[in-house]
Design a protein around this nucleic acid. Structure first.
Lengths: 232, 232
DNA sequence: GTCTATAGGCTGATAGAC
DNA sequence: GTCTATCAGCCTATAGAC
C-alpha cells in the first residue's frame, strides 16, 4: 500500500515534469528562448506556474534540461552508425556523413512530435551563440569522433580541414531542417521544405561533394608545415 | 536663415534615427529580436525611449527598417558580380557562387561595424522563420537570378535542383559567419572562427563541390519529365 | 525632435497553504 | 507536488510639456 502510493506519486511527478519539458521543447523550438515565457510553458503543460521552479529552478535550467533530454539518444545513434561505417571495407565520406545526418533526419521527420521539435530547436538555437557552451558539452564529443574518422577515411583532410568541412556539413544540415518556406516559394511549390526525406536525398551528395572538394584542395596545395604529402 | 535651420534640424533628425538603427542592428545581432528591449536600444543610441516610437512606430517596424537599410546595397553588389560572371566566356559554378558570397563576406568581415552586425543579424534571423516573409521580400528577387544563372551554367541542374543547391549554399554561408566558437574549440584554436576571410577560402570550394555533386547526381538519373525519384 | 512621466500588462521568481 | 497569491521589476506604447 505504501509502495503503491509512492509509485503513484512518483509517476505523477514524472508525468508533470515531462509534460513541462514537452511544452518547453515545443514552444522554444517555435519562438526561441526569449520568445517564450514560463507562463506560456506551464499553461500548455496544464500545470501551475510555480511547478517550473519546483522541478527545474530557473528558466535557464529548464532550457538546458530540454536540450539534455534527448542528446544522449542522438549521440548513441550517431556513434552506432559511425562504428558500422568504420567496420566496412572501404567506407566512403558519404557513408560517414550519412551516419551523422541520418539519425537527426529520422527523428526530425519521424512520428514523434517531441523529437521533431527537438531537432528544430537545435537548428534555431545553434547560430545564436548563446548556448554554445551547452551545445558543445552535449555534442562536441561525438563531433570529434566523426572528425577523426574523416581524417582517416579521406587522406586529403588534416585536422583543421576536417573540422572546417564537418562544421560546414552541420551548418548545411541544420539550416535544411528548419522547414524554411523559402524553398517552397523559390521553387513555386515544386519542392516542399517539410518533405525532409527528399531534402535528405540531396543533402548527402551536397555535403559529400563539398568535403571531397576541400580534400582535393588540400592535395593540390603545397604542404605548409611538413612535407608529408607529395607535391602536384 | 530659415533654410539653414531646417537643414540643421533635418540633420539632427537623421542622425538620431540612424543612431537608433545602428544600436538596434548591433543589439539584435547579438541577442535576437526578443532578447532586446526598446530601452536597451534607445539607451545605447543615447536617445529617449519615446524616440523609437516617433521614428519607427513599433519595435517590429524598427526591426524591419534595420533589415531593409542595407539590403539594397547587398543586392546591388551581388547582381553586379552576377553580371560580371555571366559576361565571361565560360563562367564556372564556383565563380557564380563566389559572386553571391563575396559581398556578404566582404561586408561581414570589413571595417564597418554596422555592416558586420547586419551580416550576423541575417545569419541568426533566417532560421527562426519569424521574418521569412520580410527576408523573402528583400532577397528573393536576387536569389532567383542566381538560381536561373545556375541552371544555365550547369546543365545538370533543373530549377528544383538549382534551388535546393542554392539554398544549401546560403545555409552553409550564413552558419559559417556567426562566429561560431565551436570551430575554435574543435580545432584547439588551430582555426579561428572570427577569421572570416580564411573561412571564405574553404567555403567556396565546399559549396561549389556540393553543387557539382548535385548536378552529377541529376545527370546520372532519368531525365526530368520521366519517373519521379522515390523519396525513401 | 526630444524629453519625462506614466499607463497597463507581462516577466521570472518566491511564499505559504494544502 | 501542486496550487494561489504576490513581489519587484521590466515590457511596449502613449501623452503631453518644451
Amino acid at each position: 500500500m505504501a509502495n503503491a502510493r509512492v509509485t503513484a506519486i512518483d509517476r505523477r511527478r514524472t508525468d508533470t515534469r515531462d509534460r513541462i519539458l514537452d511544452a518547453a521543447e515545443k514552444l522554444f523550438s517555435e519562438r526561441g528562448y526569449d520568445g517564450v515565457s514560463i507562463r506560456d510553458i506551464t499553461q500548455l503543460a496544464g500545470a501551475g506556474l510555480a511547478l517550473m521552479t519546483y522541478h527545474f529552478g530557473t528558466k535557464d535550467r529548464l532550457f538546458e534540461c530540454v536540450l539534455e533530454r534527448r542528446a544522449e539518444v542522438l549521440n548513441r545513434d550517431r556513434l552506432a552508425a559511425l562504428d558500422a561505417v568504420l567496420a566496412r571495407q572501404n567506407p566512403t565520406v558519404g557513408e560517414l556523413l550519412s551516419g551523422f545526418v541520418e539519425p537527426y533526419v529520422r527523428y526530425g521527420s519521424g512520428p514523434d512530435a517531441g523529437w521533431r521539435h527537438y531537432c528544430r530547436l537545435i537548428a534555431i538555437v545553434g547560430p545564436t551563440g548563446r548556448w554554445s557552451e551547452l551545445l558543445g558539452r552535449l555534442f562536441d564529443s561525438t563531433a570529434e569522433k566523426f572528425i577523426a574518422a574523416l581524417t582517416r577515411i579521406e587522406p586529403g583532410l588534416d585536422e583543421e580541414r576536417a573540422t572546417r568541412a564537418f562544421l560546414f556539413c552541420v551548418g548545411t544540415m541544420v539550416t535544411s531542417f528548419t522547414g524554411n518556406p523559402r524553398l517552397d516559394r523559390l521553387t513555386k511549390r515544386m519542392a516542399i521544405a517539410a518533405d525532409l526525406n527528399r531534402t535528405f536525398d540531396y543533402l548527402i551528395p551536397f555535403i559529400a561533394g563539398g568535403v571531397a572538394a576541400i580534400a582535393d584542395l588540400a592535395e593540390r596545395e603545397a604542404p605548409p608545415p611538413s612535407p608529408r604529402r607529395r607535391s602536384k
